[in-house]
Every structure is written in C-alpha cells, then in structure tokens.
Amino acid sequence: MRSLTIRQRQVLTLAAFGYTNAQIGRLLNVRANTINRHLSEVYATLGARDRANAVAIGIHSGDITLSELGRIAAAATDRPTDGPSEPPRARLSAPEPVSGLPEGRDADRPPQSRTDAAA
C-alpha cells in the first residue's frame, strides 16, 4: 500500500474531525474542489469506500493519530463562541509513529484472553 502525502494526511485529519470540504479548503487556502480531489486520492490509496471508512483506515494504519485530533479539538475550544463558525487554524505536522500496536502476521488478529491462551 502506498503511503499518503503530508497534504493528504492533513486533509484526512481535518475530515476526521468533521470539517466539510469547504472548511478544510478555507483552512488550507485552497478550493473545496482541491480538497475533494485530495480526498478521492486518499480513498484510492487507502482502498476506502467513503470518508468514514478512510478515517477508520487512517487511524488503524497510523496516518491519523489521536494526538493530532486532540490538538485540533483543543484549538477548536480555544476560539470564541460568538461569530461565524470557522475551523481553527491548527498546525498539522507529519503523523507521529504509532506505538503499542502489534506487528507481524497476527497484527490484525485480536489479542487472546488468558483463558484462550491457556487452552
């Protein structure tokens, strides 16, 4: 599987937070059509059916980290509540490596419980 570009990761992370293509476009200073193209490329790269599936795959593969989503959420709560609803201008960096995930052949297999392991 090909990896996502930094821009594709930024777009996918903002989509994961719930922003529309127009909001993401305003944040990144591009048109909504450009965001739509980036998301189409993300879907193709990840083999995703739609936005939600791409987000799930992105989180599972480490292209989106929960810490990035937390930074966006924190930036969103720091803005005033009166006025137009604009997305925060959070700085997005390259995804951090995912630790604590199993590697190898059994990575997709759920962990066994102690009773299963003893049997």
Rank of each mutant, 00 (worst) to 15 (best):
M1P: 07
M1N: 08
M1I: 07
R2I: 04
R2S: 11
S3Y: 05
T5C: 01
I6C: 04
R7P: 01
Q8T: 02
Q8E: 15
Q10T: 06
Q10E: 14
V11S: 05
T13G: 11
T13P: 09
L14A: 08
A16S: 14
F17H: 15
G18V: 02
N21E: 11
N21I: 01
G25L: 10
L27Y: 03
L27G: 15
L28F: 05
L28P: 00
V30L: 10
V30K: 15
R31H: 13
N33P: 06
T34Y: 06
H38G: 00
H38W: 05
H38M: 03
L39H: 09
L39N: 04
L39C: 09
S40M: 01
S40R: 10
S40F: 00
E41I: 00
E41N: 12
V42Y: 05
A44R: 12
T45Y: 02
L46T: 06
L46Q: 06
A48T: 04
A48P: 13
D50G: 04
A52L: 15
N53V: 10
N53T: 11
N53G: 09
A54Y: 01
A56K: 13
I57W: 01
I57H: 01
G62W: 03
G62N: 04
G62A: 03
D63R: 12
I64N: 02
I64W: 01
L66C: 08
L66M: 13
L66F: 11
L69M: 05
G70R: 11
A73V: 00
A73M: 03
A75N: 01
A75S: 12
A76V: 04
A76D: 15
T77Q: 03
T77K: 01
D78E: 15
P80E: 14
P80Y: 12
T81G: 12
G83M: 10
P84D: 12
S85G: 07
E86F: 05
E86D: 10
P87I: 00
R89M: 07
R89G: 13
A90L: 03
A90Y: 07
A90T: 15
L92V: 04
S93Y: 12
A94T: 14
P95A: 15
E96M: 08
P97G: 09
V98R: 15
S99Q: 11
G100P: 01
L101T: 14
L101W: 06
P102I: 07
P102T: 13
P102Y: 07
G104L: 00
G104N: 08
G104W: 07
R105S: 11
R105T: 13
D106Q: 06
D108R: 12
R109Q: 08
P110Q: 02
P111L: 12
Q112Y: 02
Q112W: 10
S113H: 04
S113C: 05
R114Y: 07
R114S: 08
T115A: 09
T115L: 08
D116G: 08
A117G: 02
A118C: 00
A118N: 10
A119H: 12
A119V: 10
